[in-house]
């Protein structure tokens, strides 16, 4: 989810991009990626989101409120469904804790549990744990230009800069006018497609473009994927320190 949230943040970055001069024709992949990253960066944000998870027995909607500070701290609280209401997650650096009100326990999620699907979605907890700064992780080259939903995009091939990275390569489609990702494919070392993300709807918030609906899909699994909706987002707001503490989980 974190990854998704960052994906959203990347989209949000388009907001900033709209305010910065466009890159000249023939800009390098790295420049484009830096631009995307620069624009997506926001010190703090609070997001209200919905996730629609399609399962064997119908669909469920999970609602959550998330607070994020920088790239290494985030706190989420589930608001719906009733069963998950009050469940909280705290990510500090590389650690992930969850809190469930029914057990009043704070539990460290580690090892193979991190590989489990997040709330039954096509995302794993590990996806939440990734560093969202793409230029830190990848070098980018422009491979082509394509139109997605009528928007002209750069297609960037991202290759891992370092070994400690989940996805060895990615392909991203960057809206040339808005510097947002409209599509992203994540690949294994072998080049096999593992996950896809498609931005299906964008919205304008305070004259900025933000993704409203994203479809995230595990390419190896069957199913309709997981839909993610941003219902509201507040950028660069003040978030008290205690939110990013284990004590906040029990509050």
């Amino acid at each position: 989810m974190r990854r998704l949230l960052w994906s959203i943040a990347v989209l949000i970055s388009s907001v900033c991009c709209g305010q910065t001069p466009r890159l000249p024709q023939g800009a390098s992949g790295d420049e484009i990626l830096k631009k995307v990253d620069l624009n997506m960066f926001s010190e703090n944000k609070i997001i209200l989101s919905r996730m629609i998870i399609h399962g064997e027995r119908g669909s469920r909607t999970v609602e959550a409120k998330s607070w994020q500070r920088g790239t290494r701290e985030s706190f989420s609280e589930f608001l719906a469904p009733a069963r998950d209401k009050g469940t909280k997650m705290l990510k500090l650096q590389d650690m992930l804790w969850t809190y469930s009100p029914s057990t009043d326990r704070t539990i460290l999620i580690s090892g193979h549990m991190l590989r489990q699907s997040l709330m039954g979605s096509d995302l794993s907890y590990e996806d939440m744990m990734e560093d969202p700064h793409l230029p830190h992780l990848y070098t980018a080259t422009v491979s082509s230009e394509e139109a997605i939903g009528g928007r002209l995009c750069w297609v960037l091939d991202l290759a891992a800069r370092k070994e400690e990275i989940s996805y060895f390569s990615r392909k991203v489609w960057v809206d040339k006018a808005r510097y947002i990702l409209l599509k992203e494919n994540l690949y294994a070392k072998s080049g096999k497609l593992l996950k896809t993300m498609d931005i299906r709807e964008v919205m304008e918030v305070k004259s900025h473009w933000i993704a409203k609906s994203i479809l995230y899909k595990d390419a190896l699994k069957e199913g309709e994927g997981t839909e993610f909706f941003v219902d509201s987002i507040v950028l660069d707001t003040t978030i008290p320190d205690y939110i990013f503490s284990k004590a906040a989980l029990r509050k």
Partner: peptide, 16 residues
């Protein structure tokens, strides 16, 4: 002891 497992719908489940 707390059991951490998945609900039949895939959500994380906790039980004391």
């Amino acid at each position: 002891a707390t059991l951490i497992t998945s609900t039949m719908y895939g959500s994380m489940a906790y039980f004391n």
